[in-house]
Design a protein around this nucleic acid. Structure first.
Lengths: 248, 248
DNA sequence: CTATCAGATTGATCTGCGTCAAATACCCGA
DNA sequence: TCGGGTATTTGACGCAGATCAATCTGATAG
């Protein structure tokens, strides 16, 4: 669902240009049939809210294109991002009717939705789907816990470096340019969204990005296009165990 | 698994003094039989590590008594708690062999363990167990996300107030003294463990507890025994939506 | 080409929390 | 009861990051 290191098993259904990661690859055909019957598409404009916290959410979905975020907010407006949804990621709570956070499109977003009740019924009939979802949810829980370490204990510079290497890794796993020292990608987030991700202010984000640029850890073409000349360097700036990543 | 608002369905197996929350109540008898065959007990002393990060973990388990924590650590020793296990909570990753964090006993702990392979086989045979685990994992993911909001956006005072009301709520759901304005409980954590939970230093924790005491939000008998004269007051100090809790 | 506006950068200043250090309370065994 | 070690409190001080404010950049529409 978010921040996965490695794309898990998944299947391509019908005319969707992506592979839905919620469903197991081993038995594509049967589920494809069933899914076709209950799926539909919805598109959202940049900035639009997809689901409000506490609202009824009567579908589960995969992101087909664009970026969506999960955020939580305090009464006075302080907001924290708690999930980042990139194409092929899954949203929804089979078994529960509402989520305690807002889902927002940060770019134009196309989602492939499945009506919840039929989806849940299919889950009951095909047990390995529940197991597949359990797997994914456990992965996401691990990601959330790594994120907690970042929020609770890392410095601003480490936070930025961590975010950059997460985005780079995500990109790499899509483009299959793994294990390169050099890496080039576009930031899918504004400075403000990055701040909400990291528990910082957008000014601090900007300053730390400038600092990383000044120190030669990254290069920028425009505001969003990033070149990392040495991923090892970036990852050691991130403060994690140095061997935790995709690079030998 | 941790920080649940409401104790979910669960079952009592054999001579365990607790109800294991990992297993559905609807069909107790069958699973009881199966679980009896593969379970065993392990006890740990306060301070002892139950599982090291990256170690093989060949069992899943429920906490019977005592308190255990999940923690993640950076190379230089900064540590962040990412899970708090109270009696009846579940640990383990069916489907995966290792967890990326340390599990530590903070008090003497007794765990009721199930060997992983047989447990997973039982999961395959009884599909609603996977669904039950999915449910629990989703709850835990929600809790982790609320925790992220706390780590990223709350002040030290709000963090302390949040932790106190979480512990109070947890206690309340066990003792069934829900919906009282006044609440009395023991802190199960040292100041240092609280600091690791909240992403603070132990000095800041101590200072903020003193401040809450000075301001009449809480009273202390000794270091650990807490009286909250007005839960509404405490919860508004915590900064959440005021209606998010157990009180009307 | 210029006006406009959102996003981003940069600077100056302030402050909450961390750091370092010392004092105090508490627990348990001898 | 005393001693020693651990948990906790409290104080003084400094700094990372927040806040407030001004400027700059770049994309888009007219």
């Amino acid at each position: 669902m978010t921040l996965h290191e490695v794309p898990p098993l998944s299947l391509r259904c019908g005319d969707c240009p992506i592979r839905h990661r919620a469903v197991c690859a081993r038995c594509e055909s049967d589920e494809l049939q069933e899914l076709e019957g209950i799926k539909y598409y919805r598109s959202f404009e940049a900035g639009q809210t997809i689901v409000w916290a506490e609202d009824q959410m009567d579908f589960v979905a995969s992101v087909v294109s664009g970026i969506a975020t999960l955020t939580q907010t305090l009464e006075d407006g302080r907001t924290q991002m708690v999930g980042l949804l990139l194409p092929s990621d899954f949203v929804g709570r089979p078994g529960l009717s509402s989520a305690p956070y807002n889902v927002t499109a940060t770019t134009d977003v196309l989602m492939c939705c499945f009506r919840k009740t039929p989806f849940e019924e299919m889950m009951l009939r095909t047990p390995h789907i529940a197991q597949r979802l359990l797997q994914m949810t456990l992965d996401e829980l691990d990601a959330a816990r790594e994120w907690m370490l970042l929020l609770g204990r890392k410095t601003a510079r480490e936070k930025i470096a961590s975010l950059l290497s997460i985005v780079a890794r995500r990109n790499a796993s899509i483009r299959l340019e793994v294990a390169e020292e050099r890496m080039v990608f576009d930031l899918p987030l504004t400075r403000e969204a990055m701040a909400d991700y990291l528990g910082l202010t957008l000014e601090t984000v900007s300053r730390q990005i400038s600092a990383l640029k000044r120190d030669g850890v990254i290069e920028l073409q425009g505001k969003r296009h990033v070149t990392v000349p040495d991923m090892h360097r970036l990852m050691s700036e991130a403060g994690d165990d140095s061997d935790g990543g995709i690079l030998g």
